[in-house]
Design a protein around this nucleic acid. Sequence first.
DNA 1: CCTATGACCGTGA
DNA 2: CTCACGGCCATAG
Length: 112
Amino acid sequence: MGAPRQAIPGAAGFFARVYAAVRSIPRGHVATYGQVALWLGAPRGARAVGWALRALRPENEACVPWHRVVGRGGRISLREGAGPRLQVRRLRAEGVRFVEGRVDLGRHGVRA
DNA sequence: CCTATGACCGTGA
DNA sequence: CTCACGGCCATAG
């Protein structure tokens, strides 16, 4: 395991493709990890997408709207630290509506 | 090439 | 509905 040495916006290969896909998510909208994986041509690579986002550092998180990526059903996948609350706060700031603690995908989910 | 880890997902109990 | 299991993928040693 272990965190990637350098996950940068200009990263090569998979990470870069994940970041590019996440940047394409419009403001006020969200996509699921599985959906992002699908865009990359890896229908089963949702977990790898999570890995790429986890690798984001404070320096580069600014150029990647990671908060627009949620788990299946609109659930927040972050579990520890200030992450979960920060993600919710940022989404609500973009006008994203939460229902029963989950993002209303019918209203804010990006369409395949 | 091996195993271990994780911001996942689908399925079945 | 929730929970546990197994499978997937990329990356680190």
